[in-house]
Design a protein around this nucleic acid. Structure first.
Lengths: 187, 187
DNA sequence: GACTTGTTATATCATTCCGATACATCATTC
DNA sequence: GAATGATGTATCGGAATGATATAACAAGTC
């Protein structure tokens, strides 16, 4: 029943900036996720339909074209955010729970930080920081334990994994510092 | 029909070292994937069953216990690699195609590098290197284009993504250099 | 002894999600 | 004019997840 809220957020957030059709939406979505894999149409179109049914977005396009002239232009459905959808988006942007700082969700949330309240931003960054710190200490422990028992290659793989986590941790800490500075200065 | 071969490889590779039961296997599998998410039992058990049916692994355990004494010990099925499975594993370890250097597969392949031939190792590393180089240049281009058009936060997200890719690229290049050195020195 | 809590262990199922594919229009290049 | 490739909407089978059920056992606690 409760589908991926992050997904909805990404769609609504992109539509907030400007109305888009599915193809373009997918491209932006993929860009948003960055290095991650692109989402498929098999996920996108059903999600759009669900959002439309819920009244959060509206479809306008040549699909429901006035009868005769449907062959003149290419079928192309433009989705735009409704007022109801804008409210829902605002609500989603308030959330600072685990979904917001776990791996799948964080990138999307961060991308919309410009539309997120200062307090919420800080909570999310702090949540992510503590998540990464926990993972880092786990990896360190596991590395220390395994040091002698395991394969050189596996060891190197884990070492590199730890390095990546610590890199992101430093990044987050820099962001938190920047947020605090901005706050004190008053934007 | 052709399920995830990487998955099979990971299971067979772990069972090669020692026979294991499902629960322990899952833990090792998760550790192997490192920071990535753990695979679920809903994937593991069907996969084990399929491998058993194919004759690559054998199940031995108290499940098929001698009738009366089945309540004495906890049900626990131990899986071990068969000769057929060992051959199949060897075959899988020969592969140096795209599956071996894409994101999902590379980590697993690398973890079993100790059981992989020198030539294959080099091909896989080179494949990964070129994959990462391509991604890096794409990201750079996209960053240069977007510089002025997009959000500060989104920009920072992409910048950090690029940083991560370049980090891994340097790591891979270091590994390639190390392999070459080892090869020239003769192990 | 009875109780909770936590770990080990196997198993299934609905929902979700992806990859492939099909179809069609338009722009470009040769 | 015809091939190629980008744009665009849409669906389907199969695969994977997340949640959940069940159960034996261990360790502590009251």
């Amino acid at each position: 029943m409760k589908k991926s809220a992050v997904f909805d957020l990404a769609i609504l957030g992109l539509l907030q900036e400007s109305p888009l059709h599915g193809y373009e939406l997918r491209k932006r979505l993929s860009a948003l996720m960055g290095a991650f894999r692109a989402i498929s149409y098999g996920s996108l179109y059903p999600a759009l339909r669900a959002l439309a049914e819920a009244g959060y977005i509206s479809e306008t396009g040549d699909k429901t074209a006035p009868g005769p002239a449907l062959s003149s232009k290419r079928a192309r459905i433009t989705y735009s955010l409704t007022k109801l959808g804008a409210n829902y988006l605002k609500e989603l942007l308030q959330d600072s729970g685990p979904d917001a700082w776990e791996d799948e969700g964080f990138g999307v949330r961060f991308a919309f930080f410009a539309h997120t309240e200062e307090v919420v931003r800080q909570r999310i960054l702090e949540g992510r920081r503590s998540r990464l710190a926990e993972r880092s200490s786990q990896l360190k422990k596991s590395l220390a334990n395994a040091r002698d028992r395991i394969d050189q290659y596996t060891l190197e793989l884990h070492r590199h994994g730890l390095e990546g986590v610590e890199n992101e941790l430093r990044w987050i800490e820099g962001l938190i510092a920047a947020e605090n500075k901005t706050q004190r200065t008053g934007s």
